[in-house]
Design a protein around this nucleic acid. Structure first.
Lengths: 340, 340
DNA sequence: CAGAAAGGCCAAAGCGCTTTGAGAGACTTT
DNA sequence: AAAGTCTCTCAAAGCGCTTTGGCCTTTCTG
C-alpha cells in the first residue's frame, strides 16, 4: 500500500493525501479525517526510503562507534544506551551506530553527514579541543555532546555532569575528616571528565593548603585490574594516602581487593569514595564495606541527550546551550576519620 | 556531485556510469577505467537514500533493542557489539538499533522489514520457541540468531556456544573432585542458554548417580547482588552445597562476597566455577582467589555474527546452518577437593 | 457588485539512483 | 551481400514520497 494506491481509492491527488497525513493546514478538516481514517484502515505507512530521498530526513540519530581489535567499548555505554533508547522509542527514532577506525573517525563523520544518513549525532567521551566536536560543528549537523570539551572559540550544546563539583565535594569531605594525603585514581586523563575531577580534588585540597602529590594521582583505563594495581602502588610507596577518590565503581572493586590483599581495612586504614554511574548490576551499597559515592545516573543522561537531539531535529531547540547536572554525594561506610 | 553531473562531465549516460561503477560486465574496460577515475577524482559517492529507494538495499544490519524504564540492557551487549562493530566496519556496514517496547517487539520487527530499513537482523538472548525467531523467519529477512531457540518445526541459522557442554565439563570436574552437593546459580531460565547450562550440570551429576536438588538451582537476573543473595540462601540452608557453578562473572563477585561474609573460604569450604564471557574490565584471574571459568569470548561471537550476516546479505551464505562453538574450561585456584 | 483574499485541491516536477528495453556499430557467419 | 551476433551505450521508466506553482471556488472587503 503506497501513496499512489491510497490516493487512488480516495479519489484524491497524492498531494492532498500527503498533506492531510503530514498535518499541513491547507486541507479541509473533513477531508483530512477521511484520509487519516483510510490510512489507518489500510495500514498505510509511508516508505521511509522514499521520504528520506525527498526530504532528507531520516528519523535516525547517529553515533560513530570507535572500533578496533584493541579498542574496548566502555561498559558505561550500555547504560547510556538504555536511557537513549528508551526515549528514542517514544519518539520513533532509531539509532544508527557507524563503526569507525578509532584513529580515523573523521572520515565516518563526513560520510554520514554528506550522505545524510542521520538527522543528528551525539558525541561522547570528549577531550579538550576534541576534533570531533569541531568537525560536526562545521559540518552543520545537529548534535549534542555528552560531556564537555574545552578550548574552542565557539560554543556548542552539551549535557554534562558537574564532575569538578562532585570530586570537590568528595575531597572536601575527606579533608574535613582529617585526611591530609589524598590520592586520585582517575580515568584516562586525556578526557575532559577526568581533568575536571582532578581539578575538583585539587581545589578542595588547596582550600586547606594541601596539594595532590604527583605520585598520588593516576590515570588509567577504568578496569578492575587497573584499580588494583594503582592501589597497590599507592599504598606500598612511602607517603601512602589515607584516602582515595576513584573514578569508577569497577576500579573500586580493584581498590577493595588491593586493600584486602595488603591486610588493611576500609575505612580504618583507608577511606574510599568512588564515582557511581548507577549500574543495575553493581551497586555501591553492596560492597563489603558500603561504598561512599558521587552518584549520577548515566542512564538519565542518555535519555536527556536523546530528548535534546529530538528537540534539535524538530527545531524546538537551537543555540549552544550547555547544561551541567549536579552530582549527589552519598556517604556510606567507606569513609571515616584519618588514622592517627 | 551526483550521478547526473558526473555522467555529464564524462559525456556518458547515467546508465553507463552507474554500470561502470557497479561492476556490470557490459561496459568497456577502457570506459570503466575512465569512469572509476573521474569518480575518485571528484569524490563521487552515490547517495545512499537514492540507492536504497531504487534497490531496496540499505547497507545496514538491524537489531531490535528492548527498552523500558525497568528494562536493563545486559552489559554483555557491549562486548558483543565490539566484535560486531569491528567486523561491520571493515565491510562498510552500519548497525541500526531500533528501540522497542520490551513487551511488543513484534511491531518493530514488522516495521523494519516492511520498510526495508535494514538488509538483515540478528536476534540475541533467544528463548525456546522464541516468537522473534519464528517471526523473522516468516518475514523472510536474512537473519542470524546469537544463541539458540528450540522447539520449532523449521531450522534456522544460529551461532551459539556449547553451553551444555561447558557446564557439563565444569560439573564433571567438580564431581571428580569429590563434590556431591553442587548448586547452580543461573541466569534467567526462560532463556535457552540457561536451560542448556542446567542440562549440562544435571547430565554430569546423573553420570555419577547424583542429582541437582530443587533448592540447589536458582535462576536470577545476573547482577552482583543476586549472586550474593543466592549464595547466602544456598549456604545458610541445611544441605549446603560444597561447589557452585555460576553463570556469570558479575554474579561470581556476589558469590565471593557472600562466602566471605559467612566467614568461609574458597576453595576450602566452597569450590566455584563461573562462566566468563571475557570482559576487558573484569578478569577471573584477578579475583581474590583466581576463578575457574568456562570461557568463551562473546566478542568473537559478535564478529562471527556480523560475518555471517554480511555473507547472507551478499548471498554467499544460505540455508539454516547452525554452528556451536566449544567452550574452554580454565581451571584456576577456586576449585579444590570437597571438604571432608 | 467588482475585486481581492482565502480555502481546498491538483498536476507535475523533483529527490538521485538502478534497471529495462532498445539501438547503433562492428564483426562474424552463411 | 544479406543476415545474424556481439559489444557497448543510451533514453526513459521506475522507486514512493514531498513540494512548488497554479487553478477553481467560495467568501470577504469597500
Amino acid at each position: 500500500m503506497n501513496l499512489k494506491q491510497l490516493s487512488h481509492m480516495l479519489s484524491l491527488s497524492q498531494t492532498t493525501v500527503s498533506r492531510a497525513l503530514n498535518g499541513y493546514p491547507e486541507v479541509n478538516e473533513e477531508t483530512r479525517r477521511r484520509v487519516m481514517d483510510a490510512a489507518k484502515r489500510h495500514g498505510y505507512r509511508p516508505n521511509p526510503s522514499a521520504r528520506r530521498l525527498a526530504t532528507g530526513k531520516t528519523g535516525m540519530i547517529g553515533y560513530v562507534l570507535p572500533t578496533g581489535t584493541s579498542v574496548d567499548i566502555d561498559p558505561h555505554f550500555v547504560e547510556f544506551l538504555s536511557g537513549l533508547g528508551d526515549y528514542a522509542r517514544s519518539h520513533e527514532l532509531d539509532l544508527v551506530l557507524s563503526p569507525a577506525d578509532a584513529d580515523d573517525q573523521e572520515t565516518t563523520y563526513r560520510r554520514i553527514v554528506a550522505n545524510r544518513q542521520v538527522d543528528a549525532v551525539y558525541i561522547s567521551s570528549p577531550r579538550p579541543a576534541d576534533r570531533r566536536v569541531a568537525l560536526v560543528n562545521t559540518l552543520g549537523i545537529p548534535f549534542i555532546v555528552h560531556g564537555r570539551s574545552e578550548g574552542f572559540d565557539f560554543d556548542y550544546p552539551f549535557t554534562d555532569i558537574d564532575n569538578e563539583g562532585a570530586f570537590h565535594e568528595a575531597a572536601r569531605l575527606l579533608v574535613q575528616l582529617g585526611h591530609r594525603r589524598l590520592a586520585l585514581i582517575n580515568g584516562d586523563d586525556r578526557e575532559t571528565f577526568a581533568i575536571h575531577r582532578e581539578r575538583g580534588v585539587r581545589r578542595a585540597l588547596a582550600a586547606s593548603g594541601l596539594t595532590l602529590g604527583e605520585r598520588h594521582v593516576c590515570s588509567v583505563v577504568m578496569t578492575e585490574e587497573n584499580g588494583y594495581r594503582a592501589t597497590r602502588r599507592l599504598l606500598e610507596q612511602g607517603d601512602a594516602p589515607t584516602a582515595i577518590a576513584c573514578s569508577s565503581l569497577i576500579m573500586a572493586l580493584g581498590v577493595v581487593r588491593a586493600v584486602r590483599d595488603l591486610g588493611l581495612t576500609i575505612p580504618g586504614d583507608l577511606s574510599l569514595i568512588a564515582h557511581d554511574d548507577v549500574f543495575p548490576w553493581l551497586k555501591p551499597e553492596n560492597f563489603s564495606v558500603p561504598l561512599s559515592t558521587t552518584r549520577s545516573s548515566i542512564r538519565l543522561a542518555g535519555a536527556r541527550v536523546a530528548e535534546r537531539l529530538a528537540a534539535r531535529i524538530s527545531g524546538l531547540e537551537e543555540g549552544a546551550r550547555g547544561e551541567v547536572w549536579p552530582v549527589d554525594l552519598v556517604v556510606r561506610g567507606s569513609v571515616a576519620g584519618a588514622p592517627a
